[in-house]
Simulated scan of single mutants.
Amino acid sequence: MFTSAQAPSAFNMSKALSISPGDGEAERAALNGAAALGDAAGRGWSGVRRIEHRQQIELGPGLQFAFATENIALPTQWTLEHAQHTLIVHLDGPMRRLETRIDGLGRLRAAPAAGDWWLIPAGRRYLGRALGGEIAYAELTVDPAGFAAAAPGAGDGAGLAARMKHRDPFVHGLAARLAHLSGAGDDLAAMLRESLGQALYLHLLREHGGGAAARAVSAEARLNEAARRRVEDYIHTHLDRRITLDELARLSALSTHQLLIAFRHAFGMTPIQYVLAQRLLRVCRRLRDSADDIATIAVENGFSSHSHLSAVFKKRYGLTPRAFRLQG
Protein backbone atom coordinates (compact mmCIF):
# COMPACT_ATOMS: atom_id res chain seq x y z
CA MET A 1 0.00 0.00 0.00
CA PHE A 2 0.80 2.92 0.20
CA THR A 3 2.29 5.89 1.82
CA SER A 4 5.10 7.44 3.67
CA ALA A 5 6.07 8.36 7.16
CA GLN A 6 4.93 11.92 7.77
CA ALA A 7 5.17 14.45 10.55
CA PRO A 8 1.92 14.74 12.51
CA SER A 9 1.45 18.37 11.48
CA ALA A 10 1.93 18.26 7.71
CA PHE A 11 1.79 16.23 4.52
CA ASN A 12 3.91 17.29 1.57
CA MET A 13 2.34 16.10 -1.66
CA SER A 14 5.44 17.12 -3.64
CA LYS A 15 7.34 14.17 -2.16
CA ALA A 16 7.01 10.53 -3.14
CA LEU A 17 4.05 8.77 -1.64
CA SER A 18 6.27 6.14 -0.06
CA ILE A 19 9.57 7.24 1.45
CA SER A 20 11.73 4.97 3.58
CA PRO A 21 13.20 6.29 6.85
CA GLY A 22 16.62 7.85 6.47
CA ASP A 23 19.82 6.56 8.02
CA GLY A 24 19.42 6.22 11.76
CA GLU A 25 15.63 6.02 11.52
CA ALA A 26 15.41 2.45 10.26
CA GLU A 27 16.06 0.88 13.63
CA ARG A 28 13.42 3.03 15.34
CA ALA A 29 10.92 2.28 12.57
CA ALA A 30 11.59 -1.44 12.85
CA LEU A 31 11.07 -1.33 16.60
CA ASN A 32 7.82 0.61 16.16
CA GLY A 33 6.68 -1.89 13.54
CA ALA A 34 7.50 -4.83 15.76
CA ALA A 35 5.55 -3.35 18.64
CA ALA A 36 2.52 -2.71 16.48
CA LEU A 37 2.43 -5.67 14.14
CA GLY A 38 4.42 -8.36 15.90
CA ASP A 39 8.09 -9.33 15.69
CA ALA A 40 7.90 -10.38 12.05
CA ALA A 41 6.89 -6.89 10.97
CA GLY A 42 10.12 -5.40 12.23
CA ARG A 43 12.49 -7.67 10.28
CA GLY A 44 13.70 -7.48 6.72
CA TRP A 45 11.77 -4.51 5.38
CA SER A 46 13.34 -2.65 2.51
CA GLY A 47 15.10 0.67 3.02
CA VAL A 48 14.99 1.42 -0.74
CA ARG A 49 11.86 2.80 -2.35
CA ARG A 50 11.12 1.88 -5.95
CA ILE A 51 8.52 4.40 -7.07
CA GLU A 52 8.00 3.76 -10.79
CA HIS A 53 5.60 6.67 -11.37
CA ARG A 54 3.70 9.26 -9.40
CA GLN A 55 1.34 12.11 -10.21
CA GLN A 56 -0.13 14.57 -7.69
CA ILE A 57 -2.93 17.04 -8.32
CA GLU A 58 -5.02 19.53 -6.40
CA LEU A 59 -8.75 18.83 -6.54
CA GLY A 60 -9.75 21.95 -4.58
CA PRO A 61 -9.02 23.67 -1.29
CA GLY A 62 -7.96 21.08 1.26
CA LEU A 63 -8.43 18.20 -1.20
CA GLN A 64 -5.46 16.51 -2.87
CA PHE A 65 -5.14 13.38 -4.98
CA ALA A 66 -2.14 11.27 -5.94
CA PHE A 67 -1.65 8.23 -8.16
CA ALA A 68 1.49 6.08 -8.05
CA THR A 69 2.98 2.77 -9.07
CA GLU A 70 5.61 1.11 -6.88
CA ASN A 71 7.67 -2.06 -6.94
CA ILE A 72 7.45 -3.98 -3.65
CA ALA A 73 9.36 -7.09 -4.66
CA LEU A 74 11.37 -6.65 -1.45
CA PRO A 75 9.60 -6.46 1.93
CA THR A 76 8.45 -2.87 2.30
CA GLN A 77 7.16 -0.97 5.31
CA TRP A 78 5.15 2.27 5.46
CA THR A 79 4.10 4.54 8.28
CA LEU A 80 1.72 7.49 8.25
CA GLU A 81 0.48 9.97 10.81
CA HIS A 82 -0.55 13.52 9.95
CA ALA A 83 -3.27 16.12 10.29
CA GLN A 84 -5.31 15.15 7.21
CA HIS A 85 -7.78 12.35 6.65
CA THR A 86 -6.17 9.89 4.21
CA LEU A 87 -7.91 7.46 1.85
CA ILE A 88 -5.70 4.87 0.12
CA VAL A 89 -7.14 2.66 -2.65
CA HIS A 90 -5.35 -0.41 -4.03
CA LEU A 91 -5.98 -0.26 -7.79
CA ASP A 92 -3.89 -3.02 -9.33
CA GLY A 93 -0.91 -5.32 -8.96
CA PRO A 94 0.01 -8.42 -6.93
CA MET A 95 0.50 -8.15 -3.19
CA ARG A 96 1.29 -11.51 -1.64
CA ARG A 97 1.39 -10.25 1.91
CA LEU A 98 0.07 -7.20 3.70
CA GLU A 99 -0.14 -6.43 7.40
CA THR A 100 -1.75 -3.18 8.47
CA ARG A 101 -2.59 -1.48 11.73
CA ILE A 102 -4.50 1.73 12.50
CA ASP A 103 -4.45 3.04 16.06
CA GLY A 104 -7.79 2.39 17.72
CA LEU A 105 -8.95 -0.07 15.05
CA GLY A 106 -6.53 -2.97 15.49
CA ARG A 107 -4.49 -5.13 13.13
CA LEU A 108 -5.31 -6.93 9.89
CA ARG A 109 -3.31 -9.50 7.95
CA ALA A 110 -4.83 -9.95 4.50
CA ALA A 111 -3.60 -9.24 0.98
CA PRO A 112 -5.79 -6.71 -0.86
CA ALA A 113 -7.81 -7.17 -4.03
CA ALA A 114 -8.22 -4.36 -6.55
CA GLY A 115 -10.64 -1.85 -5.07
CA ASP A 116 -9.88 -2.50 -1.39
CA TRP A 117 -9.21 0.72 0.52
CA TRP A 118 -7.99 2.02 3.84
CA LEU A 119 -9.18 5.19 5.56
CA ILE A 120 -6.91 6.75 8.17
CA PRO A 121 -8.58 9.60 10.12
CA ALA A 122 -6.55 12.69 10.92
CA GLY A 123 -4.19 12.20 13.83
CA ARG A 124 -4.33 8.38 13.74
CA ARG A 125 -1.16 6.36 13.17
CA TYR A 126 -1.01 3.83 10.35
CA LEU A 127 1.62 1.08 9.97
CA GLY A 128 1.86 -1.30 7.04
CA ARG A 129 4.20 -4.00 5.77
CA ALA A 130 3.89 -5.48 2.29
CA LEU A 131 5.50 -7.88 -0.18
CA GLY A 132 4.53 -8.44 -3.81
CA GLY A 133 5.20 -7.07 -7.28
CA GLU A 134 4.53 -3.77 -9.01
CA ILE A 135 1.38 -2.21 -7.58
CA ALA A 136 -0.73 0.81 -8.45
CA TYR A 137 -2.60 2.81 -5.84
CA ALA A 138 -4.40 6.11 -5.33
CA GLU A 139 -4.37 8.41 -2.33
CA LEU A 140 -6.79 11.16 -1.38
CA THR A 141 -6.03 13.55 1.49
CA VAL A 142 -8.73 15.74 3.00
CA ASP A 143 -8.34 18.69 5.36
CA PRO A 144 -10.70 17.99 8.31
CA ALA A 145 -11.42 21.72 8.67
CA GLY A 146 -12.97 21.62 5.21
CA PHE A 147 -15.75 19.38 6.47
CA ALA A 148 -16.86 21.96 9.01
CA ALA A 149 -16.52 24.79 6.49
CA ALA A 150 -18.53 22.92 3.85
CA ALA A 151 -21.31 21.96 6.26
CA PRO A 152 -21.41 24.31 9.24
CA GLY A 153 -24.64 22.79 10.52
CA ALA A 154 -23.30 19.26 10.71
CA GLY A 155 -21.65 19.50 14.13
CA ASP A 156 -19.75 16.37 15.08
CA GLY A 157 -21.21 14.46 12.14
CA ALA A 158 -18.33 15.61 9.94
CA GLY A 159 -15.83 13.04 11.24
CA LEU A 160 -14.64 10.00 9.30
CA ALA A 161 -14.38 6.47 10.69
CA ALA A 162 -11.22 4.37 10.27
CA ARG A 163 -11.47 1.54 7.74
CA MET A 164 -9.16 -1.35 6.76
CA LYS A 165 -9.56 -3.43 3.58
CA HIS A 166 -12.98 -1.90 3.00
CA ARG A 167 -14.90 -2.28 -0.26
CA ASP A 168 -17.12 0.31 -1.90
CA PRO A 169 -17.46 0.13 -5.72
CA PHE A 170 -18.25 3.85 -5.93
CA VAL A 171 -15.00 4.81 -4.19
CA HIS A 172 -13.02 2.36 -6.32
CA GLY A 173 -14.54 3.63 -9.55
CA LEU A 174 -13.93 7.30 -8.76
CA ALA A 175 -10.35 6.66 -7.63
CA ALA A 176 -9.58 4.70 -10.80
CA ARG A 177 -11.09 7.41 -13.00
CA LEU A 178 -9.14 10.14 -11.19
CA ALA A 179 -5.96 8.12 -11.67
CA HIS A 180 -6.68 7.86 -15.40
CA LEU A 181 -7.23 11.63 -15.62
CA SER A 182 -4.29 12.60 -13.44
CA GLY A 183 -1.99 13.40 -16.36
CA ALA A 184 -4.48 15.25 -18.61
CA GLY A 185 -3.79 18.97 -19.02
CA ASP A 186 -6.93 20.51 -20.57
CA ASP A 187 -9.47 22.46 -18.53
CA LEU A 188 -12.31 20.03 -19.17
CA ALA A 189 -10.22 17.25 -17.66
CA ALA A 190 -9.34 19.55 -14.75
CA MET A 191 -13.02 20.35 -14.14
CA LEU A 192 -13.89 16.66 -14.35
CA ARG A 193 -11.17 15.81 -11.84
CA GLU A 194 -12.45 18.48 -9.46
CA SER A 195 -16.04 17.26 -9.89
CA LEU A 196 -15.07 13.65 -9.24
CA GLY A 197 -13.01 14.72 -6.24
CA GLN A 198 -15.95 16.60 -4.76
CA ALA A 199 -18.24 13.62 -5.42
CA LEU A 200 -15.80 11.34 -3.62
CA TYR A 201 -15.52 13.84 -0.77
CA LEU A 202 -19.29 14.03 -0.29
CA HIS A 203 -19.68 10.26 -0.62
CA LEU A 204 -17.15 9.68 2.15
CA LEU A 205 -18.87 12.30 4.25
CA ARG A 206 -22.30 10.77 3.80
CA GLU A 207 -21.55 7.04 3.77
CA HIS A 208 -18.48 6.79 5.99
CA GLY A 209 -18.82 9.83 8.23
CA GLY A 210 -21.80 11.86 9.33
CA GLY A 211 -24.75 12.04 6.95
CA ALA A 212 -25.83 15.30 8.60
CA ALA A 213 -22.87 17.04 6.98
CA ALA A 214 -23.90 16.07 3.45
CA ARG A 215 -27.50 17.08 4.16
CA ALA A 216 -26.32 20.47 5.41
CA VAL A 217 -24.36 21.02 2.19
CA SER A 218 -27.39 20.12 0.07
CA ALA A 219 -29.77 22.33 2.06
CA GLU A 220 -27.65 25.45 1.49
CA ALA A 221 -26.73 24.73 -2.15
CA ARG A 222 -28.92 26.95 -4.32
CA LEU A 223 -28.18 29.56 -6.99
CA ASN A 224 -30.36 32.65 -6.79
CA GLU A 225 -31.28 34.35 -10.05
CA ALA A 226 -28.48 36.93 -9.87
CA ALA A 227 -25.85 34.27 -9.16
CA ARG A 228 -27.18 32.10 -11.96
CA ARG A 229 -26.85 34.98 -14.44
CA ARG A 230 -23.32 35.76 -13.27
CA VAL A 231 -22.23 32.15 -13.69
CA GLU A 232 -23.93 31.76 -17.07
CA ASP A 233 -22.52 35.05 -18.43
CA TYR A 234 -19.04 34.18 -17.24
CA ILE A 235 -19.10 30.80 -18.96
CA HIS A 236 -20.34 32.21 -22.26
CA THR A 237 -17.76 35.01 -22.18
CA HIS A 238 -14.87 32.66 -21.42
CA LEU A 239 -15.59 29.61 -23.57
CA ASP A 240 -12.24 30.15 -25.32
CA ARG A 241 -10.34 30.12 -22.01
CA ARG A 242 -9.68 27.82 -19.10
CA ILE A 243 -12.69 27.70 -16.75
CA THR A 244 -12.38 26.28 -13.24
CA LEU A 245 -14.85 25.25 -10.57
CA ASP A 246 -13.15 27.62 -8.13
CA GLU A 247 -13.96 30.59 -10.38
CA LEU A 248 -17.59 29.54 -10.71
CA ALA A 249 -17.86 28.95 -6.96
CA ARG A 250 -16.54 32.46 -6.22
CA LEU A 251 -19.05 33.99 -8.64
CA SER A 252 -21.89 32.14 -6.95
CA ALA A 253 -20.66 32.83 -3.37
CA LEU A 254 -20.77 29.08 -2.62
CA SER A 255 -18.18 26.48 -1.72
CA THR A 256 -17.09 24.13 -4.48
CA HIS A 257 -19.08 21.33 -2.85
CA GLN A 258 -22.23 23.46 -2.79
CA LEU A 259 -21.70 24.73 -6.35
CA LEU A 260 -21.82 21.23 -7.83
CA ILE A 261 -25.18 20.59 -6.19
CA ALA A 262 -26.57 24.08 -6.90
CA PHE A 263 -25.45 24.04 -10.54
CA ARG A 264 -27.28 20.81 -11.24
CA HIS A 265 -30.42 22.23 -9.61
CA ALA A 266 -30.18 25.38 -11.74
CA PHE A 267 -29.08 23.99 -15.12
CA GLY A 268 -30.03 20.30 -15.01
CA MET A 269 -26.43 19.20 -15.62
CA THR A 270 -22.96 19.46 -14.14
CA PRO A 271 -20.66 22.44 -14.88
CA ILE A 272 -18.43 20.38 -17.16
CA GLN A 273 -21.43 19.09 -19.13
CA TYR A 274 -22.73 22.63 -19.53
CA VAL A 275 -19.38 24.11 -20.60
CA LEU A 276 -18.78 21.30 -23.09
CA ALA A 277 -22.28 21.65 -24.54
CA GLN A 278 -21.87 25.42 -25.04
CA ARG A 279 -18.45 25.00 -26.64
CA LEU A 280 -19.76 22.38 -29.06
CA LEU A 281 -22.75 24.54 -30.01
CA ARG A 282 -20.41 27.43 -30.79
CA VAL A 283 -18.18 25.11 -32.81
CA CYS A 284 -21.18 23.92 -34.83
CA ARG A 285 -22.12 27.52 -35.66
CA ARG A 286 -18.57 28.31 -36.77
CA LEU A 287 -18.38 25.17 -38.91
CA ARG A 288 -21.69 26.06 -40.55
CA ASP A 289 -21.24 29.81 -41.01
CA SER A 290 -17.52 30.23 -41.71
CA ALA A 291 -14.69 28.74 -43.72
CA ASP A 292 -12.24 29.02 -40.83
CA ASP A 293 -9.66 26.28 -40.36
CA ILE A 294 -10.93 23.59 -37.98
CA ALA A 295 -7.77 23.76 -35.85
CA THR A 296 -8.36 27.50 -35.37
CA ILE A 297 -12.00 26.89 -34.45
CA ALA A 298 -10.91 24.27 -31.93
CA VAL A 299 -8.41 26.50 -30.12
CA GLU A 300 -10.72 29.53 -30.14
CA ASN A 301 -13.41 27.47 -28.43
CA GLY A 302 -11.39 26.01 -25.59
CA PHE A 303 -10.14 22.77 -27.15
CA SER A 304 -6.43 22.03 -27.04
CA SER A 305 -6.12 20.91 -30.68
CA HIS A 306 -7.90 19.79 -33.83
CA SER A 307 -7.63 16.16 -32.68
CA HIS A 308 -9.02 16.99 -29.23
CA LEU A 309 -12.06 18.67 -30.78
CA SER A 310 -12.53 15.82 -33.27
CA ALA A 311 -12.53 13.18 -30.54
CA VAL A 312 -15.07 15.06 -28.39
CA PHE A 313 -17.20 16.07 -31.38
CA LYS A 314 -17.41 12.53 -32.75
CA LYS A 315 -18.26 11.13 -29.34
CA ARG A 316 -21.12 13.61 -28.99
CA TYR A 317 -22.50 13.74 -32.56
CA GLY A 318 -21.25 10.54 -34.22
CA LEU A 319 -19.24 12.29 -36.94
CA THR A 320 -16.13 14.44 -37.25
CA PRO A 321 -16.20 18.26 -37.50
CA ARG A 322 -15.11 18.00 -41.15
CA ALA A 323 -17.95 15.59 -41.97
CA PHE A 324 -20.40 17.91 -40.16
CA ARG A 325 -19.22 20.85 -42.27
CA LEU A 326 -19.48 18.87 -45.51
CA GLN A 327 -23.05 17.90 -44.67
CA GLY A 328 -23.94 21.56 -44.31
Rank of each mutant, 00 (worst) to 15 (best):
L131M: 09
D246S: 15
G328I: 00
R107I: 04
A7E: 02
L326F: 10
I19W: 15
G173Q: 02
L326I: 00
G22N: 08
S195R: 03
G209C: 01
G197V: 06
S46N: 14
Q258A: 15
A150S: 15
D186H: 13
S305T: 04
I272L: 07
D23Q: 11
T100R: 13
Y126S: 14
G328N: 04
L131S: 02
A311K: 05
D246L: 15
H308G: 07
G209S: 06
F324P: 00
V171D: 01
A73W: 12
I72M: 11
D293W: 04
R43L: 13
I102C: 06
G302H: 04
A253Q: 12
Y126N: 09
A212Q: 10
G93W: 09
M191L: 08
D143Y: 12
R229H: 11
D233Y: 05
Y137A: 12
A29V: 07
L131F: 11
G93C: 07
L192R: 13
A311T: 04
L37E: 03
G328F: 07
G123M: 06
L254S: 08
N12I: 01
Y201S: 02
H85Q: 08
R177Q: 05
T270C: 09
L248S: 00
G209W: 06
I261R: 03
T141K: 00
A184H: 05
A221I: 05
H85Y: 15
H53I: 06
G173C: 09
R325Y: 00
L59N: 06
H82P: 01
R264M: 11
A298N: 04
D103H: 10
N224C: 04
A179G: 15
R250Y: 10
R43P: 01
R222I: 03
R97F: 13
D156P: 08
A68K: 14
G318P: 05
G183W: 14
L87R: 01
F313Y: 00
F303T: 03
L160W: 10
I297R: 01
E99S: 07
E81W: 08
E81Q: 13
D116P: 02
H308A: 14
Y274L: 11
L254G: 06
V142C: 03
H203R: 09
L59V: 10
D156I: 00
H238K: 11
P321A: 09
M164P: 02
G22W: 08
L281K: 07
E70I: 14
G146C: 15
T244C: 03
